[in-house]
Design a protein around this nucleic acid. Structure first.
Lengths: 229, 229
DNA sequence: ACGACTTTGTGCGTCGGTTCACAAAGGGAT
DNA sequence: ATCCCTTTGTGAACCGACGCACAAAGTCGT
């Protein structure tokens, strides 16, 4: 029925992919503390998910556990890293070196594994030429050249909203197919390109919604609700 | 059948809540450009979603459209704002004034509507006392006092991973029930508390996964795929 | 060598979300 | 006043994800 030699199914669910980094982080922490083996129960707790979900997620990569024992931490770290593509290293360019771009450039967390900030670019002549986190800020005119010369395959957009779409277009035209967008705009791109969005304002608004609902419950109370029953 | 006077259903789907800010942003842009009325088709395009989905989302707030015409932009802005709780203003405290905390403090985008940065807190005596974005950085010892005195109801955690859980506990103990977490850790909180997580490293890893898959397709080629048929 | 125990991997029912497609509703023209 | 045209609001089918619960598989102790 199913091949043993080729357990990796190319159709890993998106929800699973989104959790693999979480598992990887928990596993790295355990590896550092010298833990050799971990059960799905414990790993799930560390990652904050249901253990059945974790097992199903891992089963999409292959049968890497041992029944009655659990998972080998080192081995699982390697398998997940490989699946996520972290065994190669990715050159990342940060476009827009305002407060946020600067913070990202200095953020050690994501440079650690697999990613390397290969370029910082900005349009402001005031900023171009500055050294930030050991890198020289280059002029945005160099965008296409820098992407090609340094093999940049992931671009982080940290520009004002007004500039984002145009820069996005240029980045896509230069062959980049993975973009992490911090600008508060909906980017339109060909569907060969992956865009992930991080939007601080939206996150706050979602929190506000729930906070308000909690406040309503307190004052109005479920017993006083107009439409209860 | 259905009440006309109280159309608001208190059970708005989570997926819908997450998109309301998107619609709101698009609508604000239209209002600024003097557009009075918009169809679900146009608004959906501006927000980058399917028009049926948009209509169903809006229908959860009530029947605010006019058939044959569309939605009144101003009115819809008001209704969504109210639903999200943006008609009141929320005092936000930023805990951790490193590169990221600083960027957030200076980020005008989310201060604009409904949110106000009411406090900046840090543990580093080097930073405490500095003025950032017109605010004085206070010592983390003041955390509980500041939260209560200024009515802070949303806290943004922008601390190193190691400090996040402890500060989270203190913040929760001080009565805060909405947290936006930038630290790369899984926070454990009572389930009365809402935590939303923004994790740059995870976003990059997800991009890397897809980028790798695209690369595999190129070299291996769909025609050579082991399991195609 | 065997039995008790632990833990994985997964079949299956359930649920929330998405999309299609259409009937109902309103506007405007004649 | 009536008909046509546009656009909303939603019923219903579909799809992916979640979590329970359990059989299969492997370990460890005797």
């Amino acid at each position: 029925m199913m091949r043993q030699s080729q357990p990796r199914d190319r159709g890993i669910p998106e929800a699973t992919v989104a959790r693999l980094p979480l598992y990887l982080r928990a596993l790295n922490g355990m590896a550092e503390r010298g833990i050799a083996t971990v059960s799905s129960e414990d790993l799930a707790a560390a990652a904050g998910v249901n253990s059945a979900k974790l097992r199903k997620d891992l089963s999409h990569l292959g049968s890497y556990g041992t029944r009655g024992v659990g998972y080998d931490v080192e081995y699982l770290v390697y398998q997940i890293s490989r699946e996520l593509g972290l065994t190669q290293d990715w050159a990342v360019a940060i476009v827009g070196v305002g407060n946020l771009g600067r913070a990202l450039a200095n953020y050690g967390g994501f440079v650690s594994r697999g990613f390397r900030v290969a370029a910082l670019l900005d349009a402001d002549p005031e900023i171009v030429g500055d050294d930030i986190a050991g890198l020289n800020v280059e002029h945005i005119d160099e965008l296409e050249a820098v992407i090609k010369r340094r093999g940049v395959s992931i671009v982080v957009l940290a520009t004002p909203a007004a500039a984002a779409q145009e820069l996005c277009d240029r980045v896509v035209a230069a062959g980049v197919t993975s973009i992490l967008n911090f600008a508060p705009v909906v980017l339109s791109v060909p569907d060969t390109v992956d865009v992930r969005k991080v939007d601080l304002s939206i996150e706050l608004q979602i929190l506000a919604f729930h906070e308000q609902r909690k406040a309503d419950r307190m004052s109005g109370g479920p017993l006083m609700a107009v439409d209860s029953q």
